[in-house]
């Protein structure tokens, strides 16, 4: 069986698939790719099932060496990649052979790069997923972020696939993004002024942002009567506002329950885009109805099905 060897993990690299579902009632976070679109695209390019685990690298791409001949693809954040010093194109299948070295630089747009490998990684499923839950030191490759010298076994793919992602599916990530939301479960716990601040100002993704949540800085959001609720379930994309008035968006590794008022939820269709935002990026929020949010998702899915036949 072949392996890949991590030469440099960049800022943070970990194994992620579409997430670990079914155990949130026991307190197990979902984890999984922050940009599930890019995960799916990278897998499509190499002929994997859409939920197969990839390496997710953050802000600085990983460098690695292949000890097998196989097919790979890079999707997500825009990054300059080289194989043995030669320019390697993103968003398409790339053939590599034993001894080849892949190097990536800093992201030029977006935040997270997904490396798929044909056949996937030979890593055991833990509770039906290969995703790494970093804080819990659980799942993925030995429950941890990838480090220089790690060798990960890869499965034989059997088939050689040549694919290029349709241009229509390639996002131009911007530093200034409009994210669509629906009203949150506790929206009535905010003043009119507070809701106006939230919807009409620009927020910045702060440095205290990670796979668990994005802390935003910007206009404070005012509550009518305190920020605490009886602890209750949280879904990914929920926007909590603690007493200090600065919103926090719950991301892939968020805890399953929380005790702060939620002003809004990011719509499911925009979560992958949100997953490509990094500290310093600007966000504005635009409210849509629940019906519209679901229709946007259905339409997005329909277009994708057509393009990735």
């Amino acid at each position: 069986m072949g392996t890949i060897k991590i030469l440099n993990p960049g800022l943070l690299s970990s194994i992620q698939d579409a997430g670990r579902y079914g155990y949130q009632q026991y307190g197990m976070p979902v984890a999984g790719a922050m940009d599930t679109d890019a995960l799916q695209f990278a897998n499509w390019c190499v002929g994997n099932s859409s939920n197969e685990a990839c390496i997710e690298s953050t802000i600085i791409g990983a460098s690695l060496e292949f000890n097998c001949g196989t097919t790979i693809a890079l999707c997500g954040a825009k990054v300059q990649a080289k194989i043995n010093g030669e320019f390697a194109e993103m968003n398409r299948s790339l053939q590599v052979k034993t001894g080849d070295k892949l190097e990536m630089g800093n992201v030029q747009a977006g935040c997270r790069i997904y490396l798929a490998i044909a056949g996937g990684f030979n890593i055991p499923d833990l509770m039906a997923s290969k995703s790494t839950y970093l804080r819990g030191k659980f799942g993925g490759f030995e429950g941890k972020a990838l480090a220089s010298g790690d060798e990960i076994e890869v499965n034989e793919s059997g088939k050689q696939i040549k694919r290029r992602l349709p241009q229509a599916l390639i996002s131009d990530f911007s530093n200034n993004t409009s994210i669509r939301i629906t009203a949150g479960a506790e929206v009535r716990r905010f003043t009119q002024e507070g809701i106006k601040s939230f919807l009409c100002s620009t927020y910045t993704v702060s440095a205290q942002s990670d796979r668990m949540g994005y802390r935003l800085s910007g206009a404070k959001i005012e509550h009518t009567d305190g920020a605490d609720i009886i602890s209750s379930g949280i879904s990914t994309g929920a926007i909590q506002v603690p007493g200090h008035g600065a919103p926090i968006i719950m991301m892939a590794d968020h805890q399953t329950v929380g005790g702060y008022t939620k002003i809004a939820n990011v719509i499911a269709a925009d979560l992958p885009l949100l997953g490509q935002m990094k500290p310093g990026d600007k966000i504005t929020f635009k409210e849509v109805s629940l019906e519209k949010a679901q229709n946007i998702l259905i339409e997005k899915h329909r277009i994708r099905q057509e393009l990735l036949k």
């Binding site: 579902y21 009632q25 009886i230 209750s232 379930g233 879904s235 329950v257 019906e291």
Partner: peptide, 22 residues
């Protein structure tokens, strides 16, 4: 329905809007 999270006084039902709408 994907899964459900019980807490003190509510249940959160997580679902896939591609399969069932609200």
């Amino acid at each position: 329905v994907i899964e459900c999270i019980p807490s003190y006084s509510d249940l959160m039902v997580l679902y896939d809007p591609l399969i069932i709408q609200y």
